[in-house]
C-alpha cells in the first residue's frame, strides 16, 4: 500500500519550492517507491554489524599543514553576486 508522505514538509526541509501540482505528483510517486522500499523492514536485522569502510580503513587524517587557498577573484567570479570580497545574498533571516 502506498505510503502517505507529508511532501510539503519534506520539500520544505529540502529547500524545494514546489507548486501544489508538483507536490501532489511527488506525493503519489514517493508513496509507491517507499512502499517498495519498505520491504527492507521485513528483514530481521538483529544480527547486523555496524557498517564501516568496505576495506576496513580507519584513522585517515591529514597533517595540520597550511596549503594554498584559491585566489579570491577566481572564487567570486563563480558567485551569483559579490561585493567588496563578500558573497552577497538576500537577507538570511532563518
Amino acid at each position: 500500500m502506498p505510503i502517505d508522505v507529508d511532501v510539503a514538509h519534506v520539500a520544505n526541509l529540502a529547500r524545494l519550492a514546489l507548486s501544489p501540482d508538483l507536490l501532489d505528483r511527488y506525493r503519489e510517486e514517493l508513496g509507491v517507491i517507499l512502499d517498495h522500499a519498505s520491504r527492507v523492514q521485513e528483514v530481521d536485522t538483529s544480527a547486523a554489524l555496524p557498517l564501516g569502510h568496505p576495506l576496513g580503513q580507519t584513522n585517515v587524517f591529514r597533517a595540520d599543514e597550511v596549503r594554498p587557498s584559491l585566489h579570491r577573484d577566481e572564487v567570486l567570479e563563480m558567485a551569483p553576486e559579490s561585493r567588496d570580497g563578500f558573497f552577497v545574498t538576500s537577507p538570511a533571516l532563518d
Binding site: 524545494l16 563563480m78 558567485a79 551569483p80 553576486e81 538576500s90 538570511a92
Partner: peptide, 17 residues
C-alpha cells in the same frame, strides 16, 4: 549562494528553494 544557477528570492532561504 556561491556558484551555479541562482534564482533570487526575497530571503536567502527563498533563493535556495
Amino acid at each position: 549562494m556561491r556558484y551555479g544557477l541562482s534564482v533570487k528570492g526575497p530571503t536567502a532561504s527563498a533563493t535556495m528553494s
